[in-house]
Write a protein that binds this DNA or RNA. Structure first.
Length: 456
RNA sequence: GUGGGUGUAGCUCAGUUGGUUAGAGUACCAGAUUGUGGUUCUGGGUGUCGUGGGUUCAAAUCCCAUCAUCCACCCCA
């Protein structure tokens, strides 16, 4: 009986055509990372749950995929724990590993664990899948690739500037129009201090973050529920409603929250970054957005988010500065900053805008037709010569009908087909067919190699 | 976790107030064409109508349940 096949919700198979395009995407991103001196690392798919838990906020813990212990995973449990109320007690007894939720936390763990072998400031990139037990929807997957770049062990704001430059480079090369939104957690904390509610910073930030989605009234509604008074909300209004150029926004912020320590620090930092960027040629729009918060708990300074201009899609790149992530693992005073490119969303954007170049589709340049045993063994020698000349080529394995072999070449978008039959072998001159034009010519192997090398 | 939509051929989908043998396009296979693909013509249906139950003389169609999937919210890449 045939088993019904399928894959888990929110996961995907990638066929060769998709993989060619994905590789093009990864290669482009990787090249930019390397151009700026970042080095690759990888970490395991699984981390200890103790590493992952509590780093992403309450919501994040819920979205972690947990891995059941091997063997008798019930050995540490007792029947009275089998209730919904005791889930929190039961979980650590049956599961101690989880699939990673992002690449930043595993990276912090990596830095702490290998601190003596690393050269600081340490610049690394990492391109690997992450998993979230979210409910899938458009642009939202349960398994997806992140492409992270981080600098750790440097507090210089030049790193923030560099990240913006890399973002600009990547999306320029991919031909995607973007807006880079910048903010600073210190600004948000300055706002919270201004209305004397520093303990409600998280509630404040997540509510403000929704501003452009649900509107001012709903944000106020939510904040009232969290314990903000009408008076405090009035104080917030000018800050939330801030508009105009980056400079005028900064000036307003200076007036409104410049008197607080965090607020003033945040303004100085943002100003410095923006000032540097002004002297550089940046193609993307760079916009100060004081409502940008980002849900992840660990950010302490700069916050960066990138949105595609021409497509309705969540953020395609995001990140920020984290001062205390390694101190959680026992290595204090090491600040890091980085961003993550969402490869799958960028892929979707490019697919929607038809931005993948034709060359991203095929790799084989030449197919040798198989006419039979004798012809095939002659072809085999030719094939080796051609491949050693650095040309991607293949010999059709079976002596199928010519029609079928031609069709194979056509569908694989192989531009050249070489017919090696009895006559051709005798004369050492082979029939080369250009699939695009349908034209055929007789060539020797040397001529063939030359033709392909010269890019015809 | 909350709300909504959709499940019919490999894929995209049609299928009338419930009615006889479930259809189209596309893909696929074969032939026209035994050394020529992409175009054209001819032939071929490859199906547990998601699953289980109910109503009925009769269910792809109506009802209930269930599963899957997509979309939106929360949150995020």
């Amino acid at each position: 009986m045939a088993q019904k096949v399928g894959i888990p919700k929110g996961t995907r198979d990638f066929n060769p055509d998709q993989m060619m395009k994905r590789n093009y995407l990864f290669d482009t991103i990787k090249e930019v990372f390397q151009r700026y001196g970042y080095l690759p690392i990888e970490t395991p798919s699984m981390e200890n749950l103790s590493t992952l838990m509590g780093k992403y906020g309450e919501e994040g813990d819920k979205l972690l995929f947990k891995v059941l212990n091997s063997g008798n995973y019930l050995s540490k449990t007792s029947p009275d724990l089998l209730h919904e109320d005791s889930l929190n007690k039961l979980t650590p007894l049956i599961s101690e590993k989880g699939l990673r939720y992002d690449l930043t936390v595993p990276f912090a763990r990596f830095v702490v664990q290998h601190q003596n072998d690393l050269q600081f400031p340490f610049k690394r990139y990492q391109i690997q899948p992450v998993w979230r037990a979210d409910r899938p929807q458009k642009g939202r997957y349960r398994e997806f690739y992140q492409c992270d770049v981080d600098v750790i062990g440097s507090t210089s704001l030049l790193n923030e500037v560099e990240l913006v430059r890399m973002i600009d480079d990547v999306f320029t090369e991919l031909d995607i129009n973007i807006v880079i939104k910048l903010n600073n957690r210190k600004i948000l904390s300055g706002i919270a201090q201004t209305i004397d509610k520093p303990e409600l910073l998280t509630d404040l930030t997540t509510a403000i973050d929704k501003l452009d989605k649900i509107g001012l009234d709903k944000v106020y509604e939510e904040l009232t529920l969290k314990g903000f008074s009408v008076d405090e909300l009035k104080q917030l209004e000018p800050i939330i409603n801030l508009g105009g150029s980056n400079d005028s926004k900064l000036n307003c912020l200076r007036e409104l929250i410049g008197h607080t320590k965090d607020g003033s620090d945040g303004i100085v930092e943002l100003n410095t970054v923006l000032k540097h960027l002004k002297t550089l040629k940046i193609k993307a729009d760079v916009e100060l957005d004081q409502s940008l918060a980002r849900g992840l708990n660990y950010y302490t300074g700069a916050i960066i988010e990138v949105k595609a201009k021409d497509v309705q899609m969540g953020s395609i790149c995001g990140g920020g500065r984290y001062d205390d992530l390694t101190s959680i693992f026992g290595l204090p005073n090491v600040s890091g900053v980085g961003v993550s490119f969402g490869a799958d969303r960028i892929y979707d954007v490019m697919e929607e805008l038809e931005l993948f170049p034709e060359t991203a589709h095929h790799t084989t340049q030449l197919l040798i037709v198989n006419f039979g045993e004798a012809e095939a063994s002659h072809s085999l020698v030719l094939l080796q010569k051609i491949q050693r000349a650095g040309i991607n080529a293949e010999l059709y394995p079976d002596a199928d009908k010519l029609k079928k072999q031609m069709k194979y070449a056509d569908q694989k978008k192989i531009p050249l087909v070489l017919l090696v039959g009895e006559e051709e072998i005798k004369s050492n001159s082979y029939n080369l067919k250009h699939m695009k034009t349908g034209l055929q010519e007789n060539v020797t192997v040397e001529q063939l190699i030359k033709i392909i090398k010269s890019g015809i």
